[in-house]
Design a protein around this nucleic acid. Sequence first.
DNA 1: CCCCTAATGGGTCTCTAGTTCCGTTAAGAT
DNA 2: ATCTTAACGGAACTAGAGACCCATTAGGGG
Lengths: 203, 203
Amino acid sequence: MEQDSRLAGTVRPGGRTARVRAAVLEATQDELVLHGFHGLSMDAVAARAGVGKTTVYRRWAGAAGLVADLMTELADQSAAHADTGSIEEDLRANALSVLAAITDERLGATLQAVIAAATCDKEAAAALSTFYERRIREWGKSVDLAIRRGELPEGTDGHEVIRAISAPLYYRLLVTKEPVDKATAERSATRALVAARNGAFID
Amino acid sequence: MEQDSRLAGTVRPGGRTARVRAAVLEATQDELVLHGFHGLSMDAVAARAGVGKTTVYRRWAGAAGLVADLMTELADQSAAHADTGSIEEDLRANALSVLAAITDERLGATLQAVIAAATCDKEAAAALSTFYERRIREWGKSVDLAIRRGELPEGTDGHEVIRAISAPLYYRLLVTKEPVDKATAERSATRALVAARNGAFID
DNA sequence: CCCCTAATGGGTCTCTAGTTCCGTTAAGAT
DNA sequence: ATCTTAACGGAACTAGAGACCCATTAGGGG
């Protein structure tokens, strides 16, 4: 059942194959917005994509494989870290980019689907893990620059600061189901900053 | 399809009914540990519980209803907040109790299942939300006591402090899939405390 | 202790997700 | 332009989840 759910590795990656892949991933997102991961059926995805369901089953391992591939695709589009010259502004920008991601209808539904898939599927878990590892490493640079500018104490763990900003937003989204708005995001950034300035993120 | 998934409201809550309910919820947890929410089938639960599957379908709306009921059940067992006289110790105790919950095989699997179910099911989402609302309110008292003792500044939002402690642990568990250990939990408590002492949780 | 009926359980039926088979289409090499 | 074969798609098939019917069991009131 080990299919290469990436385009890379296909023997004939010409126009049709690429078109089918794009249509299927697009349709997957539409279905996720409508029915969530639990209600995602390969059949519906194939129909919406205007593609034979045999094709979908051949190229992807299952519903979890679909969302895992989608996540891998999105990982390549993730943005570079902010560099405004002020750590306060950079962290604020980070919090707002997380907010934008989880409140966007398509992206938010996709993220929740991957997270749901990751609770039971190894492939989805790996895709998710890779995505955030990359994101945390990227935005950690903002913290490193701030340390060099003297805005934050030497030894501050940048990756942990970035995690600390996202964590409360995902916690609300996934666990307590409280609404996540701009004020929540900004508070999260501020709190992480205060803790960091006071040396709470030194190893 | 509106079934009363609680014992309350049943006309004849005698020995057998209670036994069936207990056996089914017990079996549900076993199945969750083995196969996760995605692989939870009413059929398997009924078989493991030694109960007719008709009975399970009659009393619970579906797989999501089962885990929602399980969560409601667990909500009644949640522990009271710590009161050691030191906010540092109380918050540490809170972080460790979260750690214990998510690392326990049965409880952890159940929590992840409810969280997965909540991404697509309203009932599960409500059960989850209620559980954490109660927990946050309960442990928020530790913070209120600390304010009265002068350990934390006046106006500190206790509920937010408690959320700030749990958030990084759930973030790792659900999103980044990094391991969650004792050191992680203690750091989380410390960081929230540092931020709180410096007024980051004043409204 | 006996009766009434709420509650359970076995058996069956249906419907849909997922699988397989094989003919058809179109990349892309020569 | 033409040929080879990777990739696609329609259709039939299988399995398992969930719904339903009706006979059986056991609370709990009288």
